[in-house]
Design a binder for these strands. Structure first.
Length: 690
DNA sequence: TAGCCTCGAGTTCT
DNA sequence: CTCGAGGCTA
């Protein structure tokens, strides 16, 4: 018995799938599965073929570069074929070490021979284009196609401003520049925004794009250059095709330098590094940089820098032996939607949450992803049983990008209908749910009677920037509420050893710690106390402003709307919300009980001390993580020095304090020309040293 | 009244 | 971190 017939079937099935998806991807610009999935199939096929060479056929996807020529563009035969490079799928730095070992073996280098020089570059997520210059003039721009024959898309490439029509100081008879056309993320977002507007306005044939690469591919293949122009593309060169009448520099990096001098865009995040260590360092550096780049990359590329050595190594089948692409973990994965849970937030907001079959994406395992609200869920037409694409880029929260319609099962669930799903009742307390006119959210009407809201209210009350009760986390709150020991905020202050002892995993020690924490929290400030009550529209800042303006709680509770409106940053909505809160007797009752339990604060808040206030009138923005100070500590220090801490950078920002892994705020600061400090700089300011 | 600036609220995982 | 929305200002 041989397993070959079975394998044969499997091989045929994989080839059919690869072919189908390659069509969707390259020809129709509408991929149905993520890259990683495609790669997986491809590797399986490669592995089978390697073990069973008799199964290899000429038309196998492994034997040719996939793609096809579309009608409507003139075919172009590549004099020098456009090859793909081998991809290391090992996403750790190990792939770089293996490449270096292979190179040294191929070059028959002795153990003690010097390190090999490599040109290390980014692997752009776009599509390959061959620009043909004759006597310095751009005469043709071709897609890769199947590697042998592509299509002339010159008219569309001309819409890319960065691509020079004429080379500076080069009149070689023929110079083909190869590189990647891609779309920047900001352009991609803007494009999709416009597409959404078109769709909203009733345009039938418009669609939004799943990712920048597809949008770029779509733009390049637009038959109408006017349309292509509306999809702004960019270009980076990384290699050469046919060359006549130009002396090619001896190294890859030298060649790119020469191209840059001619006015061809070449990415600056490239380096010449030595040996495996250099490659690993580059891989790691770029991984850090990845999310802050203005465009998508899916990895890095290593090339032997010396052209002489490249020639010595040559090619194996269709891949150069002297270059390798090394990927990062996928930021997109496909998985199954197991169900949709509905969570109840502190304000009663009902949030649909996708329960997913766990997938490893963007470096962590994801099993939940928010669907935000009903409209959003419907817009994506996400249904239970669907196969969905999940994305997680950097620190961004995982999101469901869309449904793989191709894989929708026969017995897929109904379109999402929140009211119907819940039968009009809160999933926790069964109170009726409502959705107000013009609002996106459904809410539970149970208010404080709803255990979910009660738990959230307790957690909110106990959290660090409010009453700061140490030892009261979500697990404990769950237990206390479920056991019926704590029903309202004042109940917290009636806790004693007796009722704590009834809880699981609660020893004398933890009980004492909690009671100490609760005792300590009794001494607070009016601002924190107000914030902790969880009044709608009253957050940390507004609470502080209210406390400062009224000075004591009774004056605030009895304040008329007009008086409330006098407070900084308080308008009709906030004023009404405050008034409404204190108009409800049960809320006043809670406040009285808390006071009776011993919660107290000085009447006049933040009396101007004699301490110097060097940051008076200054607004600072924090971004990234500082070496020694936590965010909260930095905030407190700045406020104590009279400064204000704001969440976003604007013209009014005085300083931006940036730490490790600073994000978009730093870019914004540079854009606006705002002074940027590190922690040492901040400390100097706090000491009053300008 | 528009547009800018801030604040509030919700969210994931280790 | 991002979005949406409230409030302020030109």
């Amino acid at each position: 018995m041989s397993e070959t017939p079975l394998l044969k079937e499997r091989v045929a099935a994989i080839r059919a799938q690869l072919h189908h998806h390659a069509q969707q991807y390259y020809v129709l610009d509408a991929p149905q599965i993520p890259d990683a999935e495609y790669d997986k199939l491809y590797q399986e096929l490669e592995a089978i073929e390697a073990a069973h060479p008799e199964l290899v056929t000429a038309d196998s996807p492994t034997q040719r570069v996939i793609g096809a020529v579309l009608d409507g563009f003139t075919p172009v035969r590549h004099v020098v074929p456009m090859l793909s490079i081998r991809t290391e799928t090992d996403t750790t730095a190990q792939g770089a070490v293996e490449f270096d070992t292979r190179v040294r073996r191929e070059l028959k280098l002795a153990e003690d021979a010097p390190q090999v020089d490599y040109a290390a570059e980014l692997k752009f997520d776009g599509l390959a284009i061959n620009l043909r210059y004759e006597h310095g003039e751009l005469v043709q721009a071709a897609t890769r196609g199947d590697g042998e024959t592509g299509e002339d898309v010159l008219q569309n490439i001309r819409t890319i401003k960065q691509v020079p029509r004429k080379l500076r100081g080069c009149s070689a008879a023929v110079l083909e520049v190869r590189g990647e056309v891609y779309m920047r993320r900001d352009e991609f977002d803007a494009l999709n925004e416009r597409q959404r507007e078109l769709i909203a306005a009733g345009a039938k044939n418009e669609k939004t794009f799943v990712n920048p690469r597809n949008a770029a591919a779509g733009a390049v293949r637009q038959l109408d250059p006017a349309m292509a122009k509306k999809r702004p593309l960019s270009f980076f060169a990384y290699g050469l095709g046919e060359v006549q009448g130009w002396e090619v520099p001896e190294t890859h990096s030298g060649m790119l330098d020469a191209l840059a001098k001619m006015g061809v865009p070449v990415n600056e995040d490239r380096a010449v590094v030595q040996g495996a260590d250099g490659l690993v360092a580059f891989h790691e550096r770029i991984r850090e940089l990845r999310d802050s780049l203005p465009f998508d990359i899916d990895g890095v590329v290593y090339k032997v820098n010396s052209r002489a050595l490249q020639q010595q190594m040559g090619f194996v089948s269709r891949e150069p032996r002297w270059a390798v692409a090394h990927k990062y973990p996928a930021q997109e994965q496909m998985t199954r939607l197991l169900g949709i849970d509905i969570q109840v937030g502190r304000t009663g907001k009902l949030t649909p949450v996708a329960k997913l079959e766990p997938v490893f994406v963007g470096g962590t395992t994801v099993s939940n992803a928010t669907l935000h609200n009903e409209d959003e869920t419907r817009r994506k037409d996400v249904r239970i049983g669907d196969t969905v694409i999940v994305r997680r880029a950097g620190d961004v929260i995982p999101e469901v990008v869309g449904v793989v319609m191709d894989r929708r099962p026969e017995d897929v669930g109904e379109p999402f209908d929140l009211y119907k799903r819940l039968d009009g009742k809160c999933p926790v307390c069964s109170s009726p749910i409502e959705r107000e006119e013009g609002e996106a959210d459904w809410r539970c009407t149970g208010g404080i009677t709803c255990p979910a809201q009660r738990k959230q209210a307790l957690l909110h009350f106990a959290s660090r920037r409010m009453m700061d009760i140490e030892g009261l986390g979500d697990k404990l709150v769950d237990q206390l509420v479920d056991a019926g020991i704590v029903r309202s905020l004042p109940d917290l202050y009636k806790l004693g050893f007796a009722n704590l002892a009834t809880l699981e995993r609660m020893g004398d020690k933890s009980a004492q710690n909690l009671l100490d924490g609760i005792e300590k929290s009794k001494s607070t400030t009016l601002g924190r106390f107000l914030y902790s009550l969880g009044i709608r529209h009253v957050g940390e800042t507004t609470a502080k402003d209210l406390a400062k303006h009224f000075g004591n709680l009774d004056r605030l509770m009895d304040a008329r709307l007009e008086e409330l409106l006098e407070v900084n940053d308080v308008g009709p909505i906030v004023a009404e919300s405050v008034r409404h809160f204190f108009d409800q007797p049960q809320h006043r009752e809670v406040v009285e009980q808390l006071r009776a339990a011993g919660v107290h604060w000085p009447d006049i808040e933040g009396t101007a001390s004699d301490a110097p206030r060097p940051l008076l009138g200054k607004t600072l923005v924090l971004t990234g993580s500082l070496p020694t100070l936590s965010r909260d500590e930095a905030k407190d220090l700045i406020e104590a020095a009279g400064g204000k801490v704001s969440g976003s950078v604007s013209k009014k920002t005085t300083y931006v304090v940036a730490g490790e892994e600073a994000g978009s705020k730093l870019d914004k600061a540079r854009e606006l020309g705002i002074a940027v400090l590190d922690e040492a700089g901040l400390q100097a300011l706090l000491r009053g040293e300008g």
